[in-house]
Amino acid sequence: MDKQKLILFLSGIALSGLLTWLLTLTNIWQLVIIAGIAAGVLNYSIGRGSLSGGIGIFLAWLGMILQGLFTNNTTALLDAFTGLLGITGFAWLIYIIIGILGFILGALGGAIGGGLIKLIIPTDRDSQ
C-alpha cells in the first residue's frame, strides 16, 4: 500500500469512527452504514474501503462498549437479556458479537461506498 493510500485508509477509519459517534446520536443504528460508506468513498476501493469502514465502526463501537461497561454497568443489562435466551451470564459473548457485527456493518458500508464511487467515477483501468 503506497503512502497516499495508507493515509486515505487511515483517514477512512477516522472518518467512519467519527461519523459512527455522530450518527449514534440519532438513535437510529441503521444509519451507521453511512459511516462505512464514507470510508469506502474516501478509499475509492471496495477492499480497502471495507477494511477501513469495518475497523472504523468496530473501534467506535468498542469505545462505546467500554464506556457503557465502565460507566453504566451495561453488563447487567446484557446478562438480563441473555436470561431471555436461557444463557444468563454470557454478556461477554454479546459484547464480542456486537463488535464483530460492527465490523461487518462497517465493511459492508465500506464496500458499498467503494463500489459506489467507482461506479460514479470509474477510472480508466476500471473501464478497460
Binding site: Q30, L105, A111, I112, L119, D124, S127
Partner: peptide, 24 residues
C-alpha cells in the same frame, strides 16, 4: 467518465443486497 465496470457493478449490487439483508 469511463464505462461502468461490470465487475464493480456486480459487486456493488451483491454487497448492497447483503447489506439490506443484514440491516433488515
Amino acid at each position: 467518465m469511463g464505462k461502468i465496470d461490470k465487475k464493480n457493478l456486480t459487486a456493488f449490487i451483491i454487497v448492497s443486497v447483503v447489506t439490506v439483508g443484514v440491516i433488515t
